[in-house]
Design a protein around this nucleic acid. Structure first.
Lengths: 144, 144
DNA sequence: GGTTGTCGCAACAGTAATTGTTACGACGGG
DNA sequence: CCCGTCGTAACAATTACTGTTGCGACAACC
């Protein structure tokens, strides 16, 4: 599976902004978050842009600009983040249409679609059980 | 997510071999399976080679060669196939190590690892509930 | 009104995985 | 010996993600 880190980085950014705001700051910059995640600020801005479209964060422009949470961490789940940053389904069908004249080629896609749908629903439910507040608390509980 | 079709194609191949054997044939060739899946025989041979390493199929060489099931479809689950053809984890960590001097950068990977581990276990359990016999029956039940 | 710091976004290169294709040796039954 | 099929290497094509540069837009501050 194409292991991608989008969900991980997005959760990192949200936890970072949340903690920073609790320390009394108004907004966090993409450069600060990028330094913590050890990546490029544009990568962070791209991801946070998707989270903004999903209503999870807000951004200000101009001097002293940056990012802030649009909701409390308690009300955001990993499912919200997953849906914001992961476009496609978990498993794909054939890239080309199977032979419809063959019994298996004809029936395999509906059969697998139904199975995958059930699995994805379970995955989404699992993700919906974890809030970003849970993530931040786990982060803070890590021994140093 | 890099949507890949390896699990789908592998399930297709297994269902095809299983049905073909029930029709009285000894072995199926990669060319026949590739025609049903509308892909290249080498793609099928590569995937079936991984399934053979996992003990799900066997192959014969020489004239009249081909592939046959090593076990009954009832005893194979999608988890067996998934583990045989999907190498990596579902979600990846950062590509570069986060800033260990930052509280979030230090704690985020253990936190997310634990969460992902739970989710992957659930996914594996779901996959283990579906046998290849279930898949074949679903395929045969598709209206034409 | 100019300066400055930050976002917004386009464009492109680098990396990696998957898929498709060709080629050819290995094998084994006839 | 011949022939069909697997086994496998090699390479191109496609796609997705990541990293990077560049520059315009915006808004606070002087």
């Amino acid at each position: 599976m194409s292991a991608n880190s989008r969900l991980t980085i997005a959760a990192h950014a949200l936890a970072w902004i949340g903690l920073y705001q609790r320390q009394g700051h108004e907004v966090a910059t993409s450069e600060q978050i990028a330094a913590s995640a050890n990546t490029n600020p544009v990568v962070i801005r791209r991801l946070l842009g998707e989270l903004r479209r999903a209503g999870l964060v807000e951004s200000r422009r101009g001097v002293g600009a940056g990012w802030s949470l649009a909701r409390e961490l308690e009300s955001m789940t990993l499912l919200d983040v997953y849906e914001a940053v992961e476009p496609g389904p978990l498993f794909a069908m054939h890239r080309t249409t199977p032979d419809q004249g063959c019994v298996v080629g004809h029936g395999i896609q509906p059969a697998m679609q139904a199975i995958y749908e059930g699995i994805e629903n379970t995955l989404r439910h699992e993700l919906s059980l974890v809030t970003l507040e849970n993530v931040l608390q786990d982060v803070l509980a890590t021994p140093h």
